[in-house]
Amino acid sequence: MKRLTLVLVAAAALFLSHAQAQRVNLLCSPDLAWCEALGPAFTEATGIPLEFIRVSSQDALARIRAESANPVFDVWFGGTGDPHLIAMRDGVAEMYIPSTWDDIIPELKSVINEEYIPLYAGAIGFVINEEALGDLPLPRSWRDLTDPMYRGLIAMPDPTSSGTAYTTLATLLQVFGEEDGWELVEGIHMNVAQYTSSGSAPGQLAGRGEVAIAIQFMHDGVKFAAQGFPLTVFAPEEGVGYEIGGISLIANAPNRDAAIEFIEWALTPEAQAIAGDLGDSYQIQSNMNTVQHPLAPNFDEINLIEYDFDRWGDPAVRDQVLTRWLNDVFAIPR
């Protein structure tokens, strides 16, 4: 029994985890390549080590909320704006005004009422595999997508699990108004082959020819095209909505000082250039001094709508839209 006591003591030692020195625990929502490139560059610039986990923006918000009593993460980097907004309003993230605040593109700040820090912007668009489309004409507009000839050729993310798809729904409802908007959503639904759980998956399906048309963020389409998939990327003519990715300081962050240092660094032009140079990410970066990557979709050439972030980012509206989509659209058999 003495030996057993010793064994138990040893087993208890298994429970021990190491005490942690100051470092940044990053919850990273954009492309993995971007997340991977951040750590080495940040450590080189500041000497502070960085650990990250890549999770989708929805997943990130869920984790931050679940852990709000004892936060693990310090900074939430990237991902669609809506969840950042919710995190701010819930108090699980806190607003920090960086020293680069005045360099951030003013429009990006104003449309979101300066409720969180804009990190980048990206627009919704069509990502098309012309090979898989065969003899069919290229769809140019949202309305084209409802044509029965595209039946089974469209992929888009599932709005209940992806912020990208919710932005798409909100775009259609804003461009066409509630009534026509829902009719259009229904028409597109009849042609959709697959709703994916991840926002960037439709482009991969299109790239491999599993579908011909993907509805998703244009910068993700550009990325897949750059990787070698046979894809064309453009915005439909009626206009498109966009996202403003955020960067947020987690409330009660365990390494608050390092977190602030990271946010400061992440908004510099040098750090933002990493996205396109090393990170396969072609969003418009939020600092106006950042040299935008040549592949980044140029917002001047895109018909951007006046996206009402305050209204469509509201969790109650979101809930209403998603419920209606589930009950009245998703339920229609194809």
Binding site: V55, S56, Q58, D59, L61, A62, R65, A66, I86, D158, T160, S161, S162, V192, A193, Q194, Y195, S197, L322, R334
Partner: peptide, 25 residues
């Protein structure tokens, strides 16, 4: 199911999606 589920949803993936996609523990 998360890769091959297509337009059908499954109980096991709903657990995951409701926690991560719909923020509803």
């Amino acid at each position: 199911p998360i890769i091959l589920g297509g337009d059908r949803n499954y109980l096991a993936t709903e657990v995951y999606l409701s926690l991560t996609g719909r923020f509803n523990p």
